[in-house]
Design a protein around this nucleic acid. Structure first.
Length: 660
RNA sequence: GCCGACCUGGCUCAACGGUAGAGCGCGGCUUUCGUAAAGCCGAGGUUCUGGGUUCGAAUCCCAGGGUCGGCUCCA
């Protein structure tokens, strides 16, 4: 006897039942809309036989959150079946999951194909998928002992699946696996899936890519096909539109359109050149951060861009990270130099240059230090992944007792930076060492200590965080602030790293109250991470429409005709006296064209000036995003903009509230 | 680095075996204009580089460089 309890607390009795049968009994429409079922809290196929006893059953339809994942997972299987049909039995299909959090893609499937394919082949594959959908093939689940499952896949020539079964048996001790079959297509899969291929309606294949088997670069590279699926056409259309919109925000596109930076082939890949307008943004940001550092007792230093190879041998960067460095410069046989990949060894030399008492600590040395790393060519991406970049770096040398307060202060500064800029879509990651990896230096007591220091502070501050083994720096664990770009890729911005190791390697000391030498602890920290990457993210975050304090041109003063160029010049000198960045447009274009040009450049404010303004000593203000504000006395307009600039966007001029 | 695609005036693109075109931008002229594109004229290209195939290559082939989508990596 099966007793089915439904969400409305009613219950039904059956001798034999599947969730589909339950749905049919509720209403044929529900059965038709059903995607899967939640039975006793577990999501299962609609065709799963219910066992004797009492079960709570909830029928899931397209409106349930989990439904999309099931749809996409089933679509991935249809993709694999289509590829198998088109490219023959030599096709090996490996894994094909649904993606939940990805901005662009809904699922993928990785194939080992007998011939290479490209995006041009996708329409053909989509057609085949549509045929499979049209055939409305039932999808059946079965469970087989691993040896029999393995035999079936080996027979079918699916060596990757056989390998996966072996691994499951060995690593997780499973004795049976679930298989899904739709017609001639057999896959190993946890499920659940839709009851038949005909349930899939709206999908699109988006791109092909290479992907290493099991994510290991020593393995064979497979062909990955990415796609997306929805329950209705509108959702697909708006998804595609969203991707298009995001691409318009791409900092590489906006960087060129707004004249912020370029990357020149002649200079080299991954080596950005800052144009005048981009440089303004950088200088504003850096200047602000400098003033915040001064408030917090940092001292500024300047160090060279190169250093002896031996310096990096001591630090441990060389030779362990030799592959990530530009090759050494041989000056003569006994002297070779590296472009610095990090600033820490240089700052350490400054610390070492003088003896230190515990009374001097913490010593906080800061520098916008440019470093060079020979990133793999395929990794480079606009400003976000480069080979030459600056770190808003500082190294804090302190006593173990001071450490947690210093970490906390760094966390507070990083939060201030992100909050001031409205970058609230970040997550906090504690990067720990991977105990199985060889790449970390130093003893494990120090690592345990440092990891514990970090946990304590993060808990105290009350931030939500995840702990991720293997994400530590090679010399110590860290707190990273990770922000998403406009197409959903995550990038590490601010970072705070605790380091007991480099002080040891460089034999750093201070004299304690007991008049004996002690080892200081170091913190490496960069609230922006890197101005390059940070501004890349900011360009996308603001879609190029920077807040007033950062905007390269803050006001465009546009004369209605050339007759008013002189007045425009007067307005500009008044603005310049107030430290505002203003530009005019003396072209022979009509005012509409001038406005369009300034608006396209995302200038926050436009002052239109003509006969009326000359006579009344006013400007006609137009605000980005809000349109025409109207005539305002010149002096008043400037004062309001000064206030907005000083507030870093917290207060906006010429909003309805600020005018009333 | 690996898989795939791509590389044409400053920018975005067209021409796809018969020695390059458009729009924007740029320069000049006309217009002197009131809130997102006035009109006319003009300059500007060894079609990424180097080889090859061909009577003939932007177009086909090979190699190199670069970019993009991913993978791997990311001190």
């Amino acid at each position: 006897m099966i007793i089915v309890k439904l969400p409305d607390d009613s219950s039904v009795e059956y001798d034999e039942a599947t969730p589909l049968r339950v749905a049919q009994d509720i209403s044929p429409r529900l059965a038709d809309a059903a995607v899967a079922a939640e039975v006793d809290g577990e999501i299962v196929d609609l065709n799963r036989e219910l066992t004797d006893g009492e079960h709570t059953v909830k029928i899931l339809t397209s409106s349930d959150e989990q439904a999309l994942e099931i749809l996409r997972h089933t679509t991935a299987h249809i993709l694999a079946q289509a590829v198998r049909r088109l490219y023959g039995p030599k096709v090996q299909y490996t894994i094909g999951p649904a993606l939940n959090d990805d901005f662009q893609y809904g699922f993928y499937y990785d194939f080992d194909l007998p011939e290479p394919i490209s995006a041009e082949d996708l329409p053909k594959i989509e057609d085949e998928m549509r045929k499979i959908v049209g055939e409305n093939i039932p999808i059946a689940r079965s469970e087989l002992p691993i040896d029999r499952a393995r035999a079936r896949f080996t027979e079918a020539g699916q060596d990757y699946k056989a390998e996966m079964i072996d691994d499951l048996a060995r690593d997780e001790g499973v004795s049976s696996v679930s298989l899904y079959e739709q017609g001639d297509f057999l896959d190993m899969c946890r499920g659940p899936h839709l009851p038949s291929t005909g349930k899939v309606k709206v999908f699109k294949l988006l791109t092909t890519a290479g992907a290493y088997w099991r994510g290991d670069e020593n393995n064979k590279m497979l062909t990955r096909i990415y796609g997306i699926a929805f329950f209705d056409k509108k959702a697909l259309a708006s998804h595609l539109e969203r991707i298009e919109e995001a691409k318009k925000r791409d900092h590489r596109v906006l960087g060129r359109q707004l004249g912020l930076f370029i990357i020149s082939d002649s200079v080299g890949p991954g080596l950005p050149l800052w144009m005048p307008k981009g440089t303004i943004i950088r200088m504003e940001l850096e200047g602000w951060l400098r003033s915040e550092l001064l408030k917090r007792g940092y001292q500024a230093v300047i160090t060279p861009h190169i250093g002896r190879v031996d310096l990096y041998r001591t630090s441990g960067h060389y030779p362990y990270y030799e592959h990530g460095l530009y090759p050494a410069m041989e000056v003569d046989e006994n002297q070779s130099y590296l472009l610095k990949p990090m600033n820490c060894p240089h700052h350490i030399q400054i610390y070492k240059a003088t003896p230190h008492s515990y009374r001097d600590l913490p010593m906080r040395l800061s520098e916008f230090g440019t470093v060079y790393r020979l990133e793999q060519s395929g990794e480079l991406s606009g400003l976000i992944r480069v080979r030459g970049f600056t770190q808003d770096d500082a190294h804090i040398f302190c006593t173990p007792e001071q450490l947690e307060a210093e970490i906390e202060s760094c966390v507070e500064l990083t939060k201030l930076v992100l909050e001031t800029l409205g970058l609230d879509n970040y997550r906090v990651r504690i990067g720990l060492r991977d105990p199985d990896s060889e790449k970390y230096i130093g003893n494990s007591e120090n690592w345990d200590l440092a990891e514990e220091n970090i946990r304590q502070v993060v808990k105290k501050v009350g931030m939500k965080y995840t702990e991720e083994p293997g994400e530590a720096a090679f010399y110590g664990p860290k707190i990273d602030f990770v922000v998403k770009d406009c197409i959903g890729r995550e990038w590490q911005l601010g970072t705070i790293q605790v380091d007991y190791n480099l002080p040891e390697r460089f034999d750093l000391e201070y004299i304690g109250a007991d008049n004996t030498a002690h080892r200081p602890v170091m913190i490496h920290r960069a609230p922006l991470g890197s101005p390059e990457r940070f501004i890349g993210i900011l360009i996308e975050h603001f879609a190029g429409a920077f807040p007033l304090w950062l905007a390269p041109v803050q006001v465009a003063v546009l004369p209605v005709s050339e007759k008013f160029n002189d007045y425009a010049a007067e307005v500009i000198s008044a603005g310049k006296a107030a430290g505002l960045r203003m530009e005019t447009d003396e072209s022979a274009d009509k005012i509409g064209a001038k406005i369009r040009r300034a608006a396209t450049q995302k200038v926050p404010y436009i002052f239109v000036v003509g006969q009326r303004e000359v006579e009344a000593d006013t400007v006609s203000v137009r605000k980005r995003g809000a349109g025409e504000v109207g005539a305002v006395a010149l002096e008043e307009a400037i004062d309001k903009l000064k206030a907005e600039r000083e507030s870093k966007g917290a207060e906006e001029a010429f909003t309805e509230e600020s005018n009333s």
